[in-house]
C-alpha cells in the first residue's frame, strides 16, 4: 500500500472516516491540523481547492430491513451541516486527488484552518468564511474577501434571502424575473 493513498491515512488515524459515496475522507475537526501536517510530510504538497458545501436539514427516506426481515421505508431527519472540502494533490509524485472533508454544523460553524500547513488555503478559507460563515481556528487573517467588510449575511448558504433593495427601478425585465421567482417557470 503506497504512502499516498487514503488507506494509509485511515490506518494512521483511525478516527478519520471514509465516505464511499463521495470518495472522501471525513476528518474530525479537533484533529484536523495534526492529520494535515502528517499528510504534508507524506508527500501531499499541493492543496488545490478549498470550498464549502451547505446542506440544509433534510428528511431522508431509507429502505431498511427490520428485525422481522421485512423491508420498510424509514424517514429520518438528517441535521443540516456545512462541509469544508479540500482537494489535495502531490506534485512531487504527480498523483491526485485526495479529498478531505471537515464537517461542522450550520449554527456557529467552526473548522480548523489548514493555512499553516498549506499556504494555498489562505484566500480560499477566507472565501468560505465570507460566503458560508464558517469560522476557521488559527487562520492568520480571517476577514471578508469578496463581499465588502460591513456586509451582513452569508450569500452562498441555501437559506440566504436578499436584503431589501431600495435602489430598484422598474424595467421591462422585472416582470420576467418576477415570473421566475413566483415559480411559474420551472426549469
Amino acid at each position: 500500500m503506497s504512502k499516498l493513498s487514503h488507506e494509509s491515512l485511515l490506518k494512521e488515524f483511525p478516527e478519520a472516516q471514509w465516505d464511499e459515496a463521495a470518495g472522501a475522507v471525513i476528518l474530525p475537526v479537533a484533529n484536523a491540523r495534526t492529520i494535515a501536517e502528517w499528510l504534508l510530510a507524506s508527500g501531499w504538497d499541493y492543496c488545490s481547492n478549498v470550498t464549502g458545501v451547505d446542506y440544509l436539514e433534510a428528511e431522508v427516506k431509507e429502505k431498511i430491513t427490520n428485525d422481522a426481515g421485512e423491508t420498510e421505508t424509514v424517514t429520518r431527519t438528517e441535521a443540516g451541516r456545512i462541509d469544508v472540502v479540500y482537494h489535495l494533490y502531490s506534485m512531487a509524485n504527480k498523483t491526485g486527488p485526495l479529498v478531505l472533508k471537515q464537517r461542522t454544523g450550520r449554527e456557529g460553524a467552526t473548522a480548523e484552518s489548514l493555512t499553516p500547513v498549506w499556504r494555498s488555503c489562505d484566500l480560499q478559507e477566507r472565501e468560505v468564511y465570507d460566503l458560508f460563515g464558517v469560522n476557521f481556528n488559527g487562520h492568520p487573517d480571517q476577514r471578508r474577501i469578496l463581499m465588502w467588510d460591513e456586509f451582513e449575511g452569508h450569500p452562498m448558504r441555501k437559506d440566504y434571502t436578499e436584503p431589501f433593495d431600495y435602489e430598484w427601478e422598474p424595467t421591462p425585465h422585472a416582470e420576467i424575473l418576477e415570473k421566475h421567482q413566483r415559480g411559474k417557470v420551472i426549469v
Binding site: P172, E175, I176, V185, V187
Partner: peptide
C-alpha cells in the same frame, strides 16, 4: 412551448 424562456440563462425572454 416556452422552452427557450426556461432555458435562457439571463432570463430575458417573456
Amino acid at each position: 412551448c416556452q422552452i427557450c424562456e426556461r432555458e435562457c440563462p439571463p432570463q430575458c425572454i417573456y
